[in-house]
Amino acid sequence: MKSLLSLSIILLAGTGSALSDNILISPASQTVSVGQTFTLDINVDQIPDLFDYEFSLSFNPAVLAAQSVTEGALFANTGDSFFSPGSINNTAGTIPTTADTLEGKVPGVSGPGTLAMVQFTAIAAGTTSIDFSPPHDLILQDSKGNTLAVTAHSADITAGTSIPEPATLSLLALALMFGFCCRFRSQPFETLNRR
């Protein structure tokens, strides 16, 4: 079952504008075979002046097992970042507190780009969503320490016992595309004020 999580973080006063960008897991939907290892990218789109971020992920540990979390190119390419991959808990199905920050009194980076890459292995057939959870762990700040408002998008993973035929895959892809289009919408979730 696919799930879609929308998260709005309201930009605090002082930012000068009320931007609302997306943080999303790519691909947003994927079917994998049991035993298959695959990688999901944690991307942001048009976000400006991003200085640091933090997120936690949750997944169904009965379907997937996280393997690693690595820093994405958006920060890694700057050469001046401090990355904390977080600690994978495949028992609980969580990857809490992946954090990354630029160093020094430098301006932030602008999206789109990849914040991090998470590698999973499908360990059993089934479906699972990968969510930014808990929501309060999703933090993005600009170079002045202001919180940036983003909308979080989850991803759905289906693990099967075999790899489907290409025709079947095409039909399945069409079906998935149809469903994605119908269900892909944002909903206000909660307003957080960490300050």
Partner: peptide, 23 residues
């Protein structure tokens, strides 16, 4: 001092780390 240690604390510290520092 907000009772939780997260990237906000990390970023506050990182701003005072000289740019280019590789940790």
């Amino acid at each position: 001092n907000d009772g939780v240690i997260n990237v906000e604390d990390l970023a506050l510290a990182a701003r005072n780390v000289p740019a280019g520092t590789v940790c």
